[in-house]
Amino acid sequence: MFQFFRGQLGFSYIGVMITLVIAAIGMQGAAVMWQQQTQRANEALLLEIGEAYRLAIGRYYESTPQPVKQYPRMLEELVEDKRFPVLKRHLRKRYPDPFSAKQAMRLVVRDGRIVGVHSQSLLEPIRSAGYQEFQSGFHGAKHYREWQFVYEPNTLADLEVAWVSR
């Protein structure tokens, strides 16, 4: 009777090992899908935050009280515009980079003034088509840091229409 049990001792071990291998492969696939889903969510958030910054910069620029329009020097000026007797807010708060929550969005600066923002991420974008007209520079971008949300004068009305129509 001992001989019968000795011949089957290795079979259970092999069965457990096969089950573990199958479980590991399944978990690896789930991890890849979870990572892609997280990247897609961060990508959508980056588009939303970037547009919020671009619109805020545009509102700041267009509401300049002097005849010569000016961009903000600091992001804080978008949150609290003190150029008027009554405090004006173009942006609710400063938003972090969705891909690195501990870091702020990088600034695009011209002549010492902020004209836009961009992410610091070196990840390759998942989305490759379906951008708005004012996001035409996003096509073919190799990294998210190439997605620059820059306000160009005389486009604020177009931006607001596109932002509201989403």
Rank of each mutant, 00 (worst) to 15 (best):
L46E: 01
L75A: 03
F11C: 02
G10Y: 02
E48G: 11
M74Y: 06
S12I: 14
L78C: 01
E43N: 10
Q3H: 01
Q70C: 06
G10S: 13
Q3T: 12
Y13W: 12
I14G: 07
T64I: 10
L45R: 07
G10A: 13
Q35H: 06
Q39Y: 04
R40D: 11
I49H: 05
R54F: 09
A23D: 02
F5P: 03
E80V: 08
A56P: 02
Q66F: 15
V21M: 12
G58E: 04
A24C: 07
E43M: 03
R6Y: 00
G15N: 12
P72N: 03
G26N: 14
F5L: 10
E76H: 13
I22L: 13
K69F: 06
A41E: 03
G58I: 04
A52D: 08
T38C: 05
L9T: 15
E80D: 15
S63N: 13
V32K: 13
E43V: 07
A56I: 04
Q66I: 10
Q70G: 00
L45T: 10
A31F: 12
S12A: 14
E62I: 04
K82S: 06
G26R: 08
E76V: 14
Q36N: 14
G26L: 07
T64C: 05
P72K: 08
A24H: 00
L55P: 01
S63P: 03
G7T: 11
R73C: 00
Q8F: 13
M33N: 04
R54C: 03
G26I: 08
Y53N: 01
P72G: 06
A30F: 12
K82Y: 04
A31C: 10
G7V: 11
G15H: 00
A24M: 09
F5I: 15
A30G: 00
Y71M: 02
M74V: 15
R54M: 15
Q39W: 00
S63K: 10
A56G: 04
Q39P: 00
V16S: 05
G50C: 09
N42P: 01
Q3S: 14
Y61Q: 08
E77W: 03
L9E: 06
G26C: 08
R73F: 03
K82I: 01
F5K: 08
L78K: 01
G7S: 13
Q3Y: 07
E48A: 09
G50T: 04
D81F: 02
Q3C: 03
Y53I: 11
A31W: 08
E48W: 02
I57M: 05
T64S: 13
